[in-house]
Amino acid sequence: MSNGAHITVKTYLTVFVILLGLTALTTGVAFIDLGGGLNNFAALTIATVKALLVVLYFMHARTSDRFTWVIAAAGIFWLLLLLGGTLDDAITRNQLPGELQLTP
């Protein structure tokens, strides 16, 4: 699906180094207590950036046509469906309809 625009070896190497750097950052952040669930937020944000880099450069999404973008977006949409449905259950598992709250 690539439209023929080339990604150079230099770009690949740069992205690779950035990915390594972000991995180091993830590891480093894990040793610092940011508090308030911010550690999870930081780790997931870094992971998202890394995934984005892989999709854009290593999987050539950046130089692909719009149809490939639609397919990639569909994959993310499906993932969100799965996460959303599962989280909805996990978060509300101890609740009954109405105001009644059960203790865990």
Binding site: D89, A90, T92, Q95
Partner: peptide, 22 residues
């Protein structure tokens, strides 16, 4: 079809809220 999977779990410990949506 991708949005209905929770109807297999109405009595499996899934939340009532999720059950209603599914």
């Amino acid at each position: 079809g991708f949005l209905v999977w929770g109807h297999h779990m109405f009595v499996a410990g899934q939340s009532v809220h999720a059950g209603l949506i599914f």
